[in-house]
């Protein structure tokens, strides 16, 4: 007897972000087994079964299961984040993860009427998700390695962007020194966060004149106070 299985895996955040519904069909024969595995993906799984028994079509289901997230040990997260970034502050991404998600790829909540460890979504219905609060996609929701690796790549791009902005400011302000690696990371933290700006006057540091009339860098609490505090908070949360 041939038994046909239709499995549908679906997920979306509480606000309908990152929605997917993927159906696949498999068959089994008699009491045989046809294993179907799901890797780094989850959601509500609905299975429907049909077969022709003694010439008569029969069906069963739908039966529902939930493929949920899991608790990732903090030490495992730290190890991944440190290996993903080779900048001046080796543990800097741990501060971002703590700031953005309190180190949680998954968080306890109720979705589809089922309470469990669902992807850790932002308060606004899930525009951002996971450890590094990346824009919601299936991969960023369920694969914490992809979430952290792509965030690390993005942050490295922000360090390069910070360097360009630093150069532009130095060009306009004769005598201004080059930033240290740590200071450039502070610039990059603002550019990674929600207070990022193209405006050169809204970076972590701004040029000001000292008592001798020389240009020096100052923390830009006037031009971007929230951005500065975001970056400082990340540093305070480094693990």
């Amino acid at each position: 007897m041939i038994i046909s299985w239709t499995n549908t895996l679906e997920y979306q955040t509480s606000g309908g972000r990152g929605a997917y519904s993927e159906a696949d069909a498999i068959t089994t024969i008699d009491k045989g087994v046809n294993a179907k595995s799901y890797g780094y993906v989850g959601g509500k799984l609905t299975a429907k079964v049909s077969a022709i028994i003694n010439g008569s079509p029969q069906s069963a289901g739908p039966n529902t299961a939930y493929l949920m997230g899991f608790a990732i040990p903090n030490a495992t997260i730290t190890s991944q984040l440190v290996s993903a970034y080779s900048g001046t502050t080796t543990h800097l991404l741990t501060g971002i993860a703590m700031k953005e998600s309190t180190y949680r790829q998954f968080a306890r909540r109720t979705l589809y009427g089922h309470t469990g460890l669902w992807p850790n979504e932002s308060y606004d219905g899930g525009s951002h998700i996971g450890l590094m609060q990346m824009p919601t996609t299936k991969a960023y929701a369920w694969d914490w390695i992809v979430n952290t690796q792509d965030a690390a790549t993005l942050f490295s791009a922000k360090v390069a962007s910070a360097q360009r902005k630093e150069n532009a400011i130095i060009t306009a302000h004769s005598g201004l020194r080059v930033l240290t690696g740590t200071e450039r990371e502070n610039m990059a933290l603002v550019l990674y966060g929600p207070y990022a700006s193209h405006n050169l006057s809204k970076q972590y540091y701004a040029p000001v004149k000292d008592a001798n009339g020389m240009w020096v860098w100052a923390v830009n609490t006037a031009g971007n106070p929230n951005g500065v505090t975001y970056a400082n908070d990340v540093r305070n949360k480094i693990q």
Binding site: S127, K158, Y192, Y195, A196
Partner: peptide, 11 residues
């Protein structure tokens, strides 16, 4: 528009 690359459309 977003500058962060993370979809914060704050400008």
């Amino acid at each position: 528009t977003d500058v962060s690359g993370r979809g914060f459309f704050n400008e």
